[in-house]
Design a binder for these strands. Structure first.
Lengths: 350, 350
DNA sequence: ATAATAGCGCGAAACGTTTAGCTCTGTCAA
DNA sequence: TTGACAGAGCTAAACGTTTCGCGCTATTAT
C-alpha cells in the first residue's frame, strides 16, 4: 500500500541506492534531486523506520523511566527531554513505575524489548536492578535527579543540599529557630540531601535543630496538607515551614489557609518548585527553584552525546566488550538551584 | 553482538522456522520447547522488533497526541492508556502540542513518520488537519474528550453537559441564584458543553442566568485564581462558584482562602476532577468527577479493537480503499460523570 | 592527447524476522 | 500390510532499507 523507496526510484528513473543516498543527506546532481523530491511528494513516500532500523541497528527511540507521571517535576522534565530529543528525530517512550521497584524492572524489560537506543531514568528507590539491566543490554543510561550507588552511569543532579541550606538559612537569618520541614519519603536521595542542607544550615548558624519539626511525607499534595496540620498541632508549633517539592507546597498552603493562618504574619513559609505559582500568589512566595527544564535538557544532550559516540565507534573497529563510548568517562552534571525573593518570610521579634 | 533467532536455532539444533513458531505461540514437541527455552535463556535472546515489524508491517506502538502534558486530566488519562496498551505489549509515544494547532500537525507528522499503528488524540482546537493526516495514512484514530466536526472516527467522550448541569442544579437547589462559573477557553468543546449544562440547569430551574458570573480562563491554576478574584470583585459577587477542571479548582480554592472566605459559610463551592483532593480537604468538597481512568481505558480498548480488526482483514482479501476495519461503523462512547457529596454547599437563607 | 582524478550512480548483499508450502515420521483404520 | 492423515520441522522467499565497492563520465593537469 504505502510507497517504498523502490517506487520512488522507479518514478525518478534512478537506482534505489541513489535515492537512499539523497534521503540520508548525500549529494546528487540537481536534476535528480528534483526528480526524487517530486516522486517523494507524489507518492507521499515515508522512510520505513523498521527497515531502516533493521539495517542501522537503531530504533531512534529512547526510554524514560520515572517513578510517577503525576509529579509536576517529572512531567516538566519529560517535557524538556522530549523537546530536545524530538529535535533530533528521536521518539520518547515514557514509562511510569508507580514508585514500585518491581514495576521498574518490568518497565525496563519492556523498554529493552522495544529496543530503545538509550534510557533516561529517575530511580524510584535505591535498587539498582533496573539500571543494571540497561547496562547489561549495552545501551547508554543516564540517571537523573537521583544517583545510584555503584552504578557507573552519567547523571544529572541538582545541588539539593545547597538549595535546601540556602532556604533554611534564609529562615534562620530572619530569626526563626523552630523551622518545620516537609520532606519526601525518608529513604530517598533528594529527601536525604535536602534534609542535610537543612541540618547544615542549622549547624552553620549554631542553632540546635528542632527535630520534632521534621515531617516526612510521600511528596504528594495530601502529604503536604497532612504534614502541615501535624506540625501546627505540636505543643510548640514551628514559626516557619519549608516544603520540599511542588505538591507538598500546594498542600501545605491549602492547610495553612484552611487553618486561617496568614503568611507571613502567623507563619513564615518557603516553598519548592513551580515558578509560575510563586509569581501569582499573594504574597509572593519565597521559593527554592530547581532548574527542571535544564535537567531534562542536559540529560537529553548527554544521552545524544553517548549515542553519537556509539555511532562513530561502530564504523571503526570496536572492542568486543562494548564500544568506544565506554571509554568516555562517566560524567556527573550538578546543577544549581536558586532561591526567589518573595515576601513570605517575616522577621521574628527577638 | 545481540543474539538472533539464528543463534537460538543453532544452539537448540533446530531450524529458524521452528524457533519462530515457538516464539509466536506455536506448538513444538516438549524436548524442543525445553531446548529453545534454554537457548533463549542462555543467549539472553530478545526478538528484534524491527525485523519483526518489517515483516508484519506493524510497529506495535501507538501515538497519543494531547494539548498539554501539564494537565492532570491528560496525565491521568495517558496513564490509563499506557497501562492498557502495555498489557498488550504496545508502546506509547506521547506528544504534547502545547495547545498550538501547528504543533499538533508537526507532532502528528512525527508520529506517522514513526509509523505508529494507531493514534489516540485529544484535539487542541477545532482544527481537524492533524486528524485528517492520520486518516489519510490509513491508521485508526480515536478521539478523546473532544470530538471533531466532520471527522469520522471513534470517540470517547464524557457527558459534560449532564455533569455540569447536575453540579449547577445542586447549587440552585440550595437557593443560590448568582453562581459563578470558571470555564476553560471559550472556543473549546468541553467549555461549551459544560457551559450548556450550566445554562440548562438555570433554565430547568426557571431562574435567570447571571451572565456576569461567567468567567473564562485557560484551565490553569493561575487562571482559576484570577477568575475567582475577578468574580469576587464584582459589585454583586456570586454566592457560589463552580470550577470546571482540576487546575482551576485548586487555583480558585487558593484565592478563596487568600481572600479569607470560608467554605461554605461565605461562599459555596463545587470543584471538578481530582477525587483524592476532595476526600482530604476540609470541608470535603462537592465535586464533579470525570471518569478519567475509564476514558483512557475505553480509548485504548477501542483502538486495540480496530487494530485486531485490521489484522484479520489483512489475511483475507481486502478492498483497495482500506481494510475491512473501515466497515465497522464509527463508535462514540459517552461516559457519565458523577457528583460527590461534600459539604461545601450551604443553603441560602431565603 | 592522454593520464589522473573527482563526482555520481548502480548492483548486490546484508539486516533478523515471518510464513507458505513442502517433507518427513509415525499412527491408526481398513 | 498399506494408505491416509496428522503433527512437527524445514526450506526459502520475502519485507524495505543501507552501504560497500565498483564503473562510468567529465573535468583538469600535464
Amino acid at each position: 500500500m504505502a510507497a517504498t523507496i523502490k517506487d520512488v526510484a522507479r518514478m525518478a528513473n534512478l537506482s534505489i541506492a541513489t535515492v537512499s543516498k539523497y534521503i540520508n543527506g548525500g549529494h546528487v546532481i540537481d536534476a535528480n534531486r528534483v526528480a526524487i523530491e517530486e516522486a517523494i511528494r507524489q507518492l507521499d513516500y515515508r522512510v520505513n523506520t523498521m527497515a531502516r532500523g533493521l539495517k542501522t541497528r537503531r530504533t531512534k527511540s529512547i526510554g524514560v523511566l520515572i517513578p510517577s507521571v503525576r509529579m509536576i517535576f517529572c512531567m516538566d522534565m519529560i517535557s524538556a527531554i522530549e523537546d530536545e530529543l524530538s529535535r533530533e528525530d528521536f521518539s520518547t517512550l515514557i514509562c511510569d513505575c508507580q514508585g514500585r521497584p518491581e514495576q521498574e524492572e518490568r518497565k525496563m524489560a519492556f523498554l529493552l524489548e522495544k529496543q530503545v537506543d538509550g534510557v533516561i531514568m529517575m530511580p524510584s528507590s535505591s535498587s539498582s536492578v533496573a539500571a543494571r539491566m540497561a547496562l547489561a543490554a549495552g545501551i547508554p543510561l543516564i540517571l537523573v535527579d537521583r544517583p545510584l550507588p555503584d552504578i557507573a552511569a552519567d547523571s544529572v543532579l541538582v545541588d539539593n543540599m545547597t538549595l535546601a541550606k540556602a532556604a533554611t538559612t534564609e529562615l534562620l537569618r530572619a530569626g526563626h529557630q523552630r523551622i518545620g520541614v516537609i520532606c519526601g519519603p525518608e529513604d530517598i536521595y533528594t529527601t536525604k540531601q535536602r534534609l542535610s542542607g537543612y541540618y547544615e544550615a542549622y549547624e552553620a548558624d549554631n542553632t540546635q535543630v528542632a527535630s520534632d519539626c521534621i515531617s516526612f511525607s510521600d511528596y504528594s499534595l495530601e502529604g503536604g496538607y497532612k504534614s502541615l496540620e501535624k506540625l501546627m498541632s505540636l505543643t510548640e508549633p514551628p514559626t516557619a515551614v519549608l516544603a520540599t517539592n511542588y505538591e507538598t507546597t500546594i498542600g501545605a498552603i491549602m492547610a495553612i489557609n484552611r487553618a486561617g493562618l496568614r503568611i507571613p504574619g502567623d507563619l513564615s513559609f518557603v516553598g519548592f518548585d513551580g515558578l509560575d505559582m510563586s509569581t501569582l500568589i499573594k504574597p509572593e512566595l519565597t521559593m527554592a527553584l530547581q532548574p527542571v527544564q535544564q535537567i531534562g535538557e542536559q540529560a537529553a544532550k548527554l544521552l545524544l552525546g553517548r549515542l553519537t559516540a556509539n555511532n562513530k565507534s561502530d564504523s571503526g573497529k570496536s572492542s568486543i566488550y562494548g564500544s568506544d563510548a565506554d571509554m568516555i568517562p562517566k560524567r556527573e552534571i550538578m546543577l544549581a538551584g536558586k532561591l526567589t525573593q518573595g515576601s513570605s518570610i517575616a522577621k521574628m521579634k527577638i
